[in-house]
Design a protein around this nucleic acid. Structure first.
Lengths: 183, 183
DNA sequence: TAGGCCATGTAACCGGTTACATGATTAG
DNA sequence: CTAATCATGTAACCGGTTACATGGCCTA
């Protein structure tokens, strides 16, 4: 259900858009914290949706600007999306390279561990700043709810990391010391 | 870096294992909350790793039991994994069908919204129980750190959901009422 | 004038999933 | 007797990424 096709329908449900705008919306806009999409998947999906009668296109040519294809959702498209929303949702998907490194704290040098934590913290702060930006100019209640959810989770994540990073670094340092001792 | 190949090396770094055990480890065991892997990806990855000299195999045949191929990591394998760990990690990946539904709270019925929240809460509770199970019989400090990190993030997530679910349901209910009024 | 933004699309590739095929043992 | 667990592997498929191809406008 959370595929590019449904994502396009979701965005078009709230208003007409071009492929370029859909990409922007899903990598920088209101949907960006829980989906991903690239041009290589959006354009084919849009073409497919049109062939299936789920969307219509009109080509706009503003002189001196690249031609743009503006897509509109059709009643059939709305129906398809609504029935996609009606299916029981799959659990959230989470994948973390940082946690793989963390689990391997004994294998990496304390410096590497520290760098990984620093980078991880910086990544979370960036996501937080990004969510703040969305929150600051968003007129939709539901979107704001979702953003606040993300904000809460991520700030908690960062708080835990900052409070417990020493413990993780200590694990790494201890292992490094016993490796030295073994030599 | 967070691909099946590295995952296999990571698990084998901590001890010999069969493909079956690697799968178990990554869907039920210590790695299960931040990676995914299926048989269809593990077995080919292991074959590839052997061809590349990163692991060795020995076939064990216990009478009355299926033959098992036990893999061991080689020094070259350790080296490859360590250099994979040394690369700067990609940010955590998060994808949520629930949040797509949440953002569309105005489009779905209040009942559907409630069901989605209930299911989401149940999914988080399940993940929490799963992490608790790992925590309770895990002898490794780093693994415990990672599990506690997950435990903290997920319990916070659940807390936010429980405190704010009414607001989300209200958005859905309000939209439903105005749809009715429009008729 | 270099780089970024707008704007569309294709093609090769790849990593992974799903389903299938097989089969013995053990616990309920 | 049935279901689960152990155990390995393949093949078809698919969804998506990456890189490529193109090109004009605007800003620093």
């Amino acid at each position: 259900m959370l595929n590019i096709r449904s994502l396009c329908l979701a965005i078009l449900y709230f208003g007409d858009a071009t492929g370029y705008e859909i990409k922007k919306q899903s990598t920088e806009g209101d949907f960006s914290h829980f989906v991903v999409a690239s041009f290589g998947s959006i354009y084919p999906a849009l073409a497919r949706l049109e062939a299936d009668g789920m969307v219509t296109v009109r080509e706009e040519t503003h002189p001196g600007k690249p031609a743009r294809k503006v897509y509109s959702i059709t009643p059939a498209g709305r129906e398809e999306f609504l029935s996609a929303l009606a299916e029981p949702q799959a659990p959230d998907l989470f994948r973390s390279e940082f946690l793989l490194i963390a689990v391997c704290a004994q294998l990496v040098t304390p410096e590497r561990m520290r760098a990984a934590i620093d980078l991880h913290a910086a990544q979370i702060r960036e996501e937080l700043a990004h969510l703040d930006a969305i929150a600051s100019h968003c007129g939709d209640d539901a979107t704001r709810w979702a953003v606040n959810y993300g904000l809460h989770c991520k700030s908690q994540k960062l708080a835990y990391l900052e409070e417990n990073r020493d413990a993780l670094e200590a694990i790494s340092a201890r292992a490094a010391r016993s490796r030295e001792a073994a030599e």
